[in-house]
């Protein structure tokens, strides 16, 4: 096996444990999207075009709540803002690649792909074929996401309406947020955002969500800067 394909498969292997967690996510997404009123084609296309789990869940919810398109687009942007941080983090490792490669790898730069790839770069350093590892991690995640979304869409109609399937959404988010709550500023950001979301719930167009997110981010940033004043600005 040549260098490129062995790197590709190393990326797939590193991604594998994450794929096990992603598969049920995709199933739930597919079923939820149909439940929210999306057509099967639209639900599947969202998995390919947007290709970002949590924002797809939120979008399905917003479509269900008949939020205006502009608000949905803005929400997708806010929910996916963190990808800019991943982009900044991997930038130096892919700086010598062609534009075609940069575009391809950027499309695959999801939470789970980033998690596996950055560990590889940090442990193994930058090698001439390292980007094949990135591709292996990203493509395998993409493939599993498409397949599991499709299966969820297929099974979705078989699930009775009376089942509280929509509750899978906040549960999924609880599972995602809990491991992040490691220090005081993060906990404060989460609690203040949650509180503002409750207080501002009646604002039109789901604007309460965006307001709450910005308040949370602001509270966390301010508290962190107070903790380490030397690092402020």
């Amino acid at each position: 096996m040549n260098q490129k394909s062995s790197m590709f498969w190393a990326g797939v292997r590193a991604e594998f444990p994450l794929l096990i967690g992603v598969f049920p996510f995709g199933l739930i997404y597919g079923a939820l999207a149909l439940n929210a009123g999306l057509s099967p084609a639209a639900a599947q296309m969202m998995s390919s075009i947007v290709f970002a789990g949590s924002s797809q869940f939120v979008t399905a919810q917003l479509i269900h709540d008949a939020a205006p398109g502009l608000v949905i687009v803005l929400t997708i942007a806010v929910v996916n803002l963190r990808h800019m941080l991943y982009s900044a983090s991997v930038a130096e490792y892919v700086k010598d690649l062609s534009m075609k490669w940069k575009v391809l790898l950027a499309y695959f730069l999801t939470d789970e792909c980033y998690a596996a790839t950055i560990i590889h770069y940090e442990e193994d350093g930058m090698k001439p074929t390292s980007h094949w590892f990135f591709l292996g991690a990203g493509f395998s995640l993409w493939f599993i996401w498409q397949v599991s979304s499709a299966l969820g869409i297929f099974l979705g109609t078989a699930i009775p309406q009376s089942w509280p399937l929509d509750f899978a959404l906040p549960l999924t988010f609880i599972a995602m947020v809990m491991p992040v709550l490691k220090d005081f500023p993060v906990v404060a950001a989460a609690l203040s955002a949650g509180l503002v979301a409750l207080l501002a719930f009646s604002l039109p167009f789901k604007l309460g969500l965006i307001l709450a997110a910005f308040v949370g981010i602001l509270v966390g940033t301010i508290l962190e800067n107070r903790k380490s004043p030397g690092g402020a600005l």
Partner: peptide, 28 residues
């Protein structure tokens, strides 16, 4: 160069957004 302050703020995006969705869903 990504400004330090933005770099720091981005860390709070996932917990803030996710909590803003969780709280009303569970409590309202």
């Amino acid at each position: 160069q990504i400004p330090q302050i933005v770099h720091r703020a981005l860390r709070f995006v996932p917990p803030a957004v996710l909590s803003a969705i969780i709280f009303p869903n569970v409590l309202m």
